[in-house]
Computed example of a mutant assay.
Amino acid sequence: MTEHTALYVYALVPDRQGAADGVTGLDGRPLRLVGVPGTTVAALVHDATPAPFQGDDEQVRRWVAEQNRAVTAVWERTGSILPMTFNVLVADDAASGRSAERRLADWITEQEADITGQLEELAGRCELRVEITVDRTAAAAGDPEEGAREAGLDGRSPGMRRLLAKQREQQARNEAGRLADSLHAEIRQRLLSVAEDFRDRGPAHRTADETGVLSAALLVRHEDIDAVGTVLSEVRARQPAVRIRFLGPWPPYTFTDARHRAYAQEAAS
């Protein structure tokens, strides 16, 4: 420890006794809850020096994974959580004589209504991530003219075969694009019928021979996870060229109002 101690803040949660028992965070540090008298909110923290965690890319990825595991473990016990980003530290304030814990408690007290409202809105909810693509080769296989084009390659010169192969690739791309366009609005509407919120995301897992249909984060009640799976299974059964990646459930990172993170960064400054 240095002269001025700090708290590394992982998340804000409903104050539940024992929710952090046995949970460890970065580099195996034991976590604890800092409850705030007069509120129903607690902060998930570990004791730290004021210096941020710094390392190479591999080490930072490991720390982020450890933070996510800790947040998930406590979320499963409390039912709601507002996760912080990596490296949110609240330090002692030598000028005012306020400890890190006092500064954090003061900030939570000031923002209690907003924080409590967000925790209530997210209670019993989780995040699912869905990425849907069309496999271009599979989409082209459904084209009745594809077999004739393949047969037409026999006896052609190498240069002509290369030209025709490029044409086939473009035709497969066009066919996959048409299918993706026809599916996007339908799948989005069906997912919104079973999810409470929907946020578009950039593609996370897409190979060179796939055309994107939809990449999204869904906010759903735990009891509706199977309903999302049913929608996706029906789409896959009806469209063999469709590829679906379905991940979660996770804490609702995407749907957490960023205001509390901004406030926390301000408190940490």
Rank of each mutant, 00 (worst) to 15 (best):
L179V: 09
R188L: 01
A51C: 07
G152M: 04
V13C: 10
V220S: 02
K166W: 08
Q67E: 14
L153H: 11
A180D: 00
L214R: 00
D135I: 03
R156Q: 14
Q59N: 08
L119W: 06
V130S: 03
D47G: 11
A94F: 02
D154Y: 08
W75Y: 08
G22E: 05
R161L: 11
I108F: 08
V134P: 01
A105V: 00
Q171F: 07
A20W: 01
Q239F: 05
S182N: 04
R206G: 04
R129V: 12
R125C: 10
L89S: 00
V41P: 02
Q67R: 14
P249E: 14
R125W: 02
R29I: 02
V134D: 03
T137C: 10
E101L: 11
A113G: 14
L33V: 06
V134R: 06
M1D: 06
I244Q: 07
D226E: 12
H260L: 10
P240T: 03
L26Q: 01
A11G: 06
Q17C: 11
R61Q: 15
F198G: 04
A180G: 04
E3N: 11
S233L: 11
G35F: 03
R201N: 13
A105C: 09
E110V: 09
G124L: 10
Y10C: 02
R178D: 15
A195H: 05
I244K: 05
R238K: 09
V134C: 03
D257G: 10
T72C: 06
A208R: 10
L218M: 04
L214M: 04
Q167W: 04
L191E: 05
L7I: 11
P37W: 00
L7H: 09
T5E: 14
Y10K: 06
T40E: 09
V41S: 08
R136M: 11
Y263K: 12
P240H: 09
E234V: 07
L12P: 04
E175M: 11
D106L: 10
A65G: 05
L163K: 14
R188T: 12
Y253G: 10
N87E: 13
A258K: 12
L163W: 12
